[in-house]
Amino acid sequence: MSELIKKAAALLESKSVQVVIGYGKGTGNRTRTIFATQVTECENLIFDSRCVQNLAVYLTKLEIKKLGKPAIVAPVPVLRSILQLAVENQITESDLVILGITSESELIDFESFAAIETFLTTHKIEIEEKYTKTIDAIKAMPVAERFAYWVKELESCFKCYACRGACPLCYCTRCTVDDNQPQWISVASHPLGNLEWHIMRAMHLAGRCTDCEACYNACPMGIPIHLLTKSMLQDVADNFGSYGPSLDKQNTLSSFKPDDKESFIR
């Protein structure tokens, strides 16, 4: 990725940005995020199939914002998150430079968020068949069995909130689960507390989640929590016709339109 390195170095050299957020070599076969503030550090940038962490998560973090204007290495899942963050007014065009990377690992420039949206129209979110099959099987279970399935799956959850930490869209400075006056959901990691947390997390991401799987990749216990968000994506598509970030349509579930269907009111 010599082209990426050259481009990143040039951005720092010209002082167009103060930091380049990208992927570097990690321990074992893993990658680790690099925050390059010096031209020489750009040499450590890499991009390959192991680079799956969603770097958009750093755009809203206080410690990273302090470093100054960033350039961010953005493969397709990161681009989706950037667009959704733009929809939610968390980032502005002039405050970052996007080092886009296509699915063919080619560099691509984006002059605006609208350009990202245009690009993404040819890169729609697609839920793989292995997941749709699992989700269909879970949905076909009788209620009691489905409930037992999730209680069992969430049994090993100890509420470390890595799923929350890794998600670019979990940027609330104070999460509902951390509120205690009043306490909305149980903080304890018992079966009820675990269920409450994961249901709340999935619901809060309904219509916003861009299916990057960062939550699942971060979970130290290997719990398939991405099945919940994938299922929500399907539900949003079935009921509202589309999913995926859109500057024009705004948030599917939190935008009111006079011609919205009201068939759910009984």
Partner: peptide
């Protein structure tokens, strides 16, 4: 700690 996501995974394992 620059890349830290602020979770409790390290302490919990």
């Amino acid at each position: 700690s620059r890349a830290c996501l602020g979770c409790g995974s390290c302490a919990y394992v």
